[in-house]
Write a protein that binds this DNA or RNA. Sequence first.
DNA 1: GCGACGCGTTTTGAATACAAAATACAGATG
DNA 2: CATCTGTATTTTGTATTCAAAACGCGTCGC
Lengths: 236, 236
Amino acid sequence: MSASDTTLATLAPLERRPLRQGLLDALRQMIIEGALPPGEKINERELCERFAVSRTPMREAINLLAAEGLVSVTPHRGASVTPVTLEEIEEAFPVMGALEALTGELAAARATEAEIATVRALHEAMVRHHRAGERVEYFRVNEAIHDALLDAARNPTLSQTARGLAARLRRARFRANLTESRWAAAVAEHAAFTEALEARDAALLSRLLRGHLENKLAAIRTALGASGGEVEGADR
Amino acid sequence: MSASDTTLATLAPLERRPLRQGLLDALRQMIIEGALPPGEKINERELCERFAVSRTPMREAINLLAAEGLVSVTPHRGASVTPVTLEEIEEAFPVMGALEALTGELAAARATEAEIATVRALHEAMVRHHRAGERVEYFRVNEAIHDALLDAARNPTLSQTARGLAARLRRARFRANLTESRWAAAVAEHAAFTEALEARDAALLSRLLRGHLENKLAAIRTALGASGGEVEGADR
DNA sequence: GCGACGCGTTTTGAATACAAAATACAGATG
DNA sequence: CATCTGTATTTTGTATTCAAAACGCGTCGC
């Protein structure tokens, strides 16, 4: 342990990630954004060629996605992208609601001033994107806020659980585009719970987060329910 | 589609499960019951020999366990059983509490009479095991009750999420043996929420389940905290 | 004696090869 | 003509092989 080690040790985490990890992320993204539409059958060979890897890491990634619930595998019959049904979303929302309520309680109690400032900054960025009508950026910042709240809650188990569920719901949100009025309402709700966080009002923040989610569900419900009930591999 | 199909279709699901599934269950059981103690390094080759399978399905099972959080893998350095730290348990409990509260609400609202009867029967079996001092059987029935409540809640997403967390907590419960007094208290709590379910009192059931869990945590906390804070691969 | 370097072994990650199951299709049969 | 059956092809599951990274140990230099 020479003197220079201390400087060397701090830099270069430089983790060469296994292929499976990269594939997992890539596939998840594809599923969430609809490049692999719900119900689509997953062809191992084809995907392997596309990413220029062998079947081994690809299969590992697919199995991991199955554990996350994004794909369903039937023995000897292959995997397919889990369909997004209104039913499944209705199921997931109360669970997510319970988790978000907890996130709110913990975040209000434990967030550092720096974290609160971050949330505030993100919120303002989000408002700007809303005003500019930039949907994609808005969505991204929106997720960043929820992520920041999870971090502020200082509970990795909660984060992991919530993020797992969120991935599944994101698909639905991605497909159900907000109406202008719902969008404005969502921004207002966000403003409210940003303030609740700054006031460290745990009960209020918890209630607001749960309400926010319920409104989101209502929006998705009408959007999906209107455009055909089931949400199979439509266009895109 | 001949006439006889309808009768044939009902029977014979007869799923030949892939090796990975069996391995996954076996390994999980081993980890929960301590056959693979926390912190233990996992030797692929050794396990493969023991189960007489090749590395491919074994690796798949290990990766799945990693997704569940029961093992931790570091790239190029192998997998090891995730240590059971008091810290992690403290984290997981509020999450589990939120989920159980939701389970209670939903179960009280949706359980069929048959399901309620099942819970009642299981509860009485549990009381018998308690009186007889049969710890292993008690634990098994105890889990069966919580499982039955989850089924009664009619929310597969909730079930999946809760069961994933429960597997991790089970390890802690398995190690922290109950004291006689805590055991009796736990049985009393169970009696209370069996009655709340029969009365379909959602708010009460929800509150009782959360309280039950908090007491459980307190018991584990003293048991583990007393016997050394960390719970590395001790005896067994 | 202490620490750094080099080399062989072990272990993990990925690719390929092989076996078994499922699907698709064609022909036979009523 | 429809249906069933047998066979070929594709696809999945598992085993084996190959490559690369990490570990252990002995040697060398200071």
